[in-house]
């Protein structure tokens, strides 16, 4: 199914007049991974190179290079951090915190969400609380989390859990509530019991909403682990940022910032790969006749 779109958006064949030097990488990539993807891959690389160039020009000629270190200086700062393994240790710590909080938060969010979405009394009972608590971002909860759990791992797990829970919960409730009535009634007259309708029809129908909620929660987890580590940790990428800031090591700050970008991107790609592989059949939203 995914291929259909690619073949439609395929790049037009190389037109006469285009210099062979420009056309050949296109042709090479098209042969290897298909025309549409090859073109967008090249454009992505062009975009990144262009951004790097602008960054270099700005930091060299416009701004104080101490405030915005040029790309090469950041690169040189990264080498010892990579060689010593320091950056990987921080990445591992932060990623573990995100995963533990994200997975537990998603689990509780999904279980509570399907129940609250389905059982009217529970929904009416808990909805006011959810509607109020959802405005307490993980950042707002840092001070109290430190008092409750100290600066150990538990406070970070809790904060990520907190942020994930409400996003996944609210999306799951919405997904369960939006299962088409016709689909539930169709199952009912085919002979499904109430429990079967819930398990075999309502929950699968909610999967696209749950997955969307989890993706948003994943991104927000990477955002909220950083302030948690800045304010209440002695390890992780956030702590690296904090420490480098105190020592006025701007290149190291930039290394940490880029690491966050790359890490978030990679984890999201892994998540999407997993969804495509395992949950693809559940991901079509209600088809329009």
């Amino acid at each position: 199914m995914a291929n259909v779109r690619d073949s439609n958006s395929a790049a037009p064949a190389a037109k006469p007049g285009i210099k062979p030097g420009i056309a050949s990488p296109f042709r090479w990539l098209r042969a290897r991974i298909g025309a549409g993807r090859g073109q967008s891959l090249i454009l992505s690389m062009v975009s990144l190179l262009f951004a790097g160039l602008i960054w270099h020009l700005l930091s060299t000629f416009v701004f104080n290079p101490f405030l915005i270190p040029p790309p090469l200086e950041v690169f040189y700062a990264a080498i010892p951090m990579i060689k010593s393994g320091e950056i990987f240790a921080d990445v591992a710590i932060s990623t573990t915190r995100v995963l533990v909080g994200f997975l537990t938060g998603s689990l509780v969010g999904i279980v509570a969400g399907v129940l609250l979405g389905r059982i009217r009394v529970l929904h009416d009972l808990f909805d006011p609380i959810i509607e109020l608590l959802r405005y307490l971002s993980p950042t707002a909860m840092i001070p109290i989390a430190v008092i409750w759990f100290g600066i150990g791992e538990m406070s970070k797990y809790f904060l990520i859990f907190w942020g994930t829970l409400f996003i996944v919960l609210i999306n799951t409730i919405a997904g369960v509530g939006r299962t088409p009535i016709a689909r539930q009634r169709a199952a009912e007259c085919l002979g499904a019991t109430r429990l079967q309708i819930f398990v075999l029809v309502v929950i699968p129908s909610a999967v696209p909403y749950i997955v969307t909620g989890m993706r948003i929660a994943m991104a927000s987890s990477f955002m909220s682990v950083i302030p948690a580590e800045i304010l209440a940790a002695d390890s992780g990428i956030g702590y690296l940022l904090q420490k480098s800031s105190m020592l006025l090591q701007t290149p190291r700050i930039f290394v940490a910032l880029i690491t966050i970008c790359v890490l978030g991107f990679i984890v999201d790609r892994i998540f999407r790969f997993f969804v495509d592989r395992v949950l693809a059949r559940y991901m079509s939203f209600v088809a329009v006749t």
């Binding site: 088409p180 016709a182 689909r183 169709a186 699968p204 999967v207 059949r281 079509s284 209600v286 088809a287």
Partner: peptide
């Protein structure tokens, strides 16, 4: 049902 898209199970 009129709307087969909602009445069918799209994941099956």
């Amino acid at each position: 049902f009129q709307d087969a898209g909602s009445a069918l199970f799209p994941w099956l």
